[in-house]
Design a protein around this nucleic acid. Structure first.
Lengths: 94, 94
DNA sequence: TTAATTTGCTACACAAAAGATAGCAACAAA
DNA sequence: TTTGTTGCTATCTTTTGTGTAGCAAATTAA
């Protein structure tokens, strides 16, 4: 449950997802996460670093080997989300 | 990202996880989720119902077929979380 | 050397979400 | 008719996130 607690915080999943594309600077990552506020981004980055999911490298923040393992588990959600989104009755903007 | 937004809310992942064990009443589910407040539980249940992840059945709340699909993706996290937890340097209560 | 830029991050005020607790209406059993 | 359970709402406090400004260090450019 500790894992779900960590990942169930705003932008935690999004950050891991974005970093799977490769190392990124703070500002770029912020931009990619729908302009999440720097306050939250910085807090999440700290938490994820303490949890050994991400680290700082030459080119900014990046996934650790552990983080990459996590992403492998996360990856199938991408495809599934598309299917799921299409099946929903357009509650969003119909 | 909409999926991560939905699942990245407090207790959303936990609820799906708990319901994978079978249908459950509101109160039992609340108990299993570390006594989450009824306010939040009810909100999450509504969101998850609108997203077609869960539904109400004879014996309380339960996963829909869609929710079960989601759980299949979620299941590997259980084992992985154990490994991950053990590898962490005991920041919690050491 | 000086003057921009860029970068990571903090401060602060406001808004939104979650937590805690009380309690009610509907139903079931005794 | 009382007792108990269940799903849920109301209300309040606390926590978390947002929006925006801006600073100090590093980098680039003149």
């Amino acid at each position: 449950m500790a894992l779900f607690d960590l990942l169930g915080r705003s932008w935690a999943l999004g950050i891991v997802w974005q970093l799977s594309a490769g190392p990124m600077t703070f500002r770029l990552l912020q931009e990619r996460c729908e302009s999440v506020s720097p306050t939250v981004l910085n807090r999440r980055l700290r938490e994820l670093r303490e949890s050994n999911m991400i680290e700082r490298g030459e080119n900014g923040y990046q996934l650790t080997p552990t983080g990459q393992e996590l992403f492998v588990l996360l990856e199938p959600f991408g495809d599934w989300a598309v299917k799921w989104g299409e099946a929903l009755p357009e509650q969003g903007d119909a």
